[in-house]
Nucleic acid binder design. Structure first.
Lengths: 157, 157
DNA sequence: TAGAAGGTTGGAGTGCACTCCAGGCAAGTC
DNA sequence: GACTTGCCTGGAGTGCACTCCAACCTTCTA
């Protein structure tokens, strides 16, 4: 959930069998390419999300093609938000499993999201810190467009 | 520099021959493990950073071991900040090359950092957006610790 | 009837940022 | 002299999150 000083990137996933609650029966029926366009995810990624258990069961047409519901879109929207927080796909799959498991998982879901929230706050703080550094650097370069550098160049610029 | 909806992760690097300005001659002489401890980076990563051109030349002891200077530590601090912004290693190498190339690269360095700054602002905004979503979810789970779920469960929780 | 468009699958491939490994060297301690 | 510690190198391996491929199926339009 949190990030080590070096590994600025990401934790450990694992493929998970899809076996959730009954899929939605509400709203429009979108093809995979329509959903790709709406969400900005590729069709590849949408299939992959389903395969690893990050989606609830997706309905199929009589020819076996995926037909996404409005509910699926809402879910994908949440997934997109969670991705933005830096949450790993593995953790999102874990969350999806909790949702499928039923209401008794509320406390754990809350815990997962609360931890994510803490992460986000930390990240915002970090980013604000980098902003300060960037501003100093940019001001330095702006004020010295053509003047010779001072001392610490290799280290400080 | 910016991130696509899907590729939340990262751009393209390339190995770059180290051939920068004369290395620092100031300050303490730290071994690689000392620097690893101070920066939180692994010794592996420090060697790798040097190899790809992300470090200025690092001095060596008479036996060929790296001896990092205070200036190197300052540089690593900046690199750490840039990593936090989400800047790719490839872009950081590019920046390091500009620093090595001399003062006439000030405008481009400024441009690079200004673009990074914009990215950071965008990311902070995104994170704030996710915070709002998380808060709604967490409040929902907190208020319904044991009560049955409502309708949209698979999609909204 | 042909061809194009859009979908299906499992499995392999990609790019990034590390991370580890084998084999070796130098200095210090018992 | 043996052992330990800490460092060196080039190159291979890892984990994540996609991304692509080949072979195939349906549906639709010309």
């Amino acid at each position: 959930m949190s990030q080590t000083p070096q590994g600025i990137c990401c934790p450990a996933p694992r493929p998970v069998p899809v076996e959730g609650p009954p899929a939605a029966g509400t709203g429009g029926r979108y093809t995979i390419s329509e959903v790709a366009e709406r969400t900005g995810l590729s069709a590849h990624t949408l299939r992959w999300y389903e395969r690893i258990g990050l989606m609830p069961h997706i309905n199929r047409s009589h020819t076996g093609q995926r037909r996404f519901s409005d509910r699926d879109l809402v879910w994908l929207d949440l997934v997109g938000k969670l991705r933005m927080t830096g949450m790993s796909v593995a953790d999102m799959v874990r969350y999806a499993e909790l949702v499928r498991a039923g209401d008794h998982t509320y406390p754990e879901r809350r815990r997962l999201l609360a931890a994510t929230r803490e992460d986000v706050l930390r990240r915002i703080d970090e980013l604000r810190g980098t902003l300060a550094v960037l501003d100093v650097k940019i001001a330095h370069y702006t004020g010295n467009e053509d003047t010779p550098a001072v001392s610490e160049e290799a280290a400080t610029s």
